[in-house]
Design a protein around this nucleic acid. Sequence first.
RNA 1: GCGCCUGUGGUGGAAUUGGCAGACACGCUAGAUUUAGGUUCUAGUGCGAGAGCGUGGGGGUUCAAGUCCCUCCAGGCGCACCA
Length: 832
Amino acid sequence: MQDKYNFSEIEKKWQDKWAQTNAFKVTEDPDKEKYYVLEMFPYPSGKLHMGHVRNYSNGDVIARFKKMNGFNVLHPMGYDAFGLPAENAAIQHNVEPAEWTWGNIAEMNRQLRTLGLSYDWDREVATAHPNYYKWMQWIFVQFFKKGLAYKKESSVNWCPSCQTVLANEQVVDGCCERCGSVVGKKNLSQWYFKITDYAERLLSNLDQLEGWPNKVKIMQRNWIGKSHGAELTFKIKDYDEELTVFTTRIDTIYGTTFMVLAPEYPTLMKMVEGTEYEKPAKEYIERCARMNEIERTSTTNEKTGVFIGKYAINPFSGQEMPIYIADYVIMGYGTGAVMGVPAHDQRDFEFAKKFGIDIIPVIDVHDPDIDLNNLQEACAAEGTLINSAEFTGMDNKEAIEKIAEIADERGIGRKTINYRLRDWLISRQRYWGTPIPMIYCEDCGWVPEKEENLPVLLPTDVEFTGKGESPIVTSKTFVDTVCPVCGKPAKREVDTMDTFLDSSWYFLRYCDARNDEAIFDKDKVDYWMNVDQYIGGVEHAIMHLMYARFFQMALYDLGLVKDEEPFKNLLTQGMVIKGYNDSNGNYIKAKMSKSLGNVVGPAEIIEKYGADTARLFILFAAPPERELDWSDQGVEGSFRFLNRIWRLVAEFLDKYENKPGEYEIRNEADKKLNYMMNYAVKKVTEDVRDRFNFNTAISAVMELVNEMYRYKEGDVNDALLSTVIRKMLILLAPFVPHITEELWSELGYEGSVHEQSWPSFDEKALVKDEIEIVVQINGKNKEKIYIPAEITRDEMLEIAKENDIVKGLIQGKEVIKMIAVPGRLINIVVKG
RNA sequence: GCGCCUGUGGUGGAAUUGGCAGACACGCUAGAUUUAGGUUCUAGUGCGAGAGCGUGGGGGUUCAAGUCCCUCCAGGCGCACCA
């Protein structure tokens, strides 16, 4: 055996071998328990970064561990291959998006293989491949037929830089999630998915997702934004229209002194038409329309608005209340109309102050610090109703129920629920995406392409200008077609789908990735789904993870899958960060990024130390959910540990014969090593299986290796040492697959270390005869005593009291209490 | 503003059920090996001269608190004029 740990040679050798033998191919096996482990698939940018390496290393440990524990493991990989960068490459470098994408995928495949990951490559998918997007279009058609896809014109988020619309979820702080440009508004006719039909299920199912991090569930709950309240209808004085508002505080109805409509309120202009209020209203609405999302939603803005000359009638008090337009009311939430209760809502309070509207307190909050008749700010607390006719004196929670009930009886309102979640806008004015398989016919309207004609292929005769509409309109072959229903000339939809659709069901396609006849075979999906362990970054907490849940539910309703939820357990891994010195020389830790110059590429680490070292460092430096602080010195340390193992095995083979099996425990040294070995097996098993604490699992093996180094300097029991080495290699195999495979073969073992079953541990070896017990006096550590392990509480205390140091410390003092915790400590409480 | 998370040596982190704080690793110090550097090996390494003191600060519960409760501070994340 070579003295030197020649990682590059070893890693290449085994990667080739695994590829040739298709080592990680799996098929359905009803006799075995299945385990589906999935890492979020990458966008094929062409270059792997450390975040990818961390993601896939985590998944690979779990996959290999589960396989060694007897599970039939599905561990696939693929590419989220549609998207804007390919199109930008086309504009900037004049390369076809397809060519650019397939080239990147080939390059990423090569890089992924250098990491030694246990994927079943036969199941690889790429969403930009017609074999994949054919079924994406098929799903769209099913959704359309079920009424889940519809087209409507409305004011949408428009990114002026990407030249496309964005979903609500893709607007972050008023800016485009992708490019950071300030998002504007535009009226366009676009395709939507009715995700709001699923709001309640998306919300309530979260409770069943016990294997999901709380943080993600809370974020989804907030995003869905369920709000209990009531709708209430107001008549308008001398005008034949009613206004309906949504409110969570119908108990404050007697404190309502004005009404506010959103600038986009549909019948607004009709209300002011031909009156003196038409001009100011129009000006105000236009001013709002010009504002971008940031200006519009800034909470620091002073309230603005204009009176429209009409009065609503409070259905309970009969009072006439002026109606205003104000931009603090949003058309997208509730009804776009709000009842103004300045005494008990801060925004209404500010508005009322500015416009000199009455502030009538109707809830007594029983707080001596608050003067209800001279409020300095709105008071939103619970309390007792005042100034509220027959409801005065009622508890406000009771009043919420009662008033809604009466409104219902009178036919002017009812209890209702509102969600913040909006329907999902899925059209994109882009080329490099799945074509929406819809056709517009003058007579038949929007009709889907016939299923036998799918896929609707992306045309290749297009020009990439980067301006305005979808580049597909420039195709001479795509747009004109015939109506699938009546056969008359018709036009195809030129927009493509949001790429988040592609990634909302790829985990299902992996179950049967090469099926040309159907989206997938139901038996196969029923066997593999759900995903037992999903792993990815927390940045996907809302969009991807909610869209995928929506798809799964909709497909469930179509009878295509057997569960409503796709991902049983979710692991959200932390970012990879690295310290750097900023322009002032301060040391700052931040996410690896090109602009900060604190990037370490996987390729350079693999070249210098090998994939096993890169994996080991990443797995050892922090538990998966935390941020990972990149440290070049830490990488050196991991490399050192692998060299240490290499030398240990080399020296062993030099001196002894490898003969694992029966061995005798001859002395204390044997016993200690045997203990450490069993302890490591127990620790690694439990840390990986129950907690994904890979860092502490690795540290347990490090302790074992340290013990082996001590042990080999003494009287060596070669059968025992052979066994320890064998088990150590198996324990490390999921983390560092190449070096363990090489050493396995050097030791003369048949087959692959990765085919071995996971070792068990001997409980008996973990029982110690004598244990160390801490003796505390008044809770302070004073002495350590060694006592037999099997001993009663009373015997423990006797031994402690006989100890000279303890005796001295309690002499002349009154012993008040003695506490003995078997196996841990003794605490003697004394006075005086 | 609301919601959530995190604060432990010089550094990354450990302490799983309230029971020896600092496992393991990095770094550092000394020594050995080496012509030298590197590698490797050995010993030491929370602070303090010491009794002691130590898990962001303050308070509490308990025989016992990194862990439970209250409160404040700092950093991070999410949502945000959501009626």
